[in-house]
Amino acid sequence: MFLINCPFCGEREQSEFKAGGEAHIVRPKQPTELSDDEWAEYLFMRKNIKGIQFERWNHVHGCRKWFNMVRDTSNDQIKAVYKMGEKPPVK
């Protein structure tokens, strides 16, 4: 079970958090101008990488804040956590 360093609360048990899928997918500003394919790309297509992955997490049983995490899915090492809107600290 992960020990997650919430950027607002500090280290907490994984059971306090909820995973929210891939990070840095921006909702299109003008959805009506997108073709079906472009909209489907935003709506459905997600990466499932073995290795470094950027994810959204929510401290749902804590401060309720969403934040981002960089995690190596091959060994579950959390490389970094950072607030929404911030740039990822690692590549």
Binding site: V26, R27, R56, N58, V60, R64, K65, W66, M84
Partner: peptide, 13 residues
């Protein structure tokens, strides 16, 4: 509530 918070915090801060 979770969904509304999600949009507020991540899409429309």
């Amino acid at each position: 509530l979770g969904k509304l918070e999600d949009y507020l915090q991540t899409e429309w801060p």
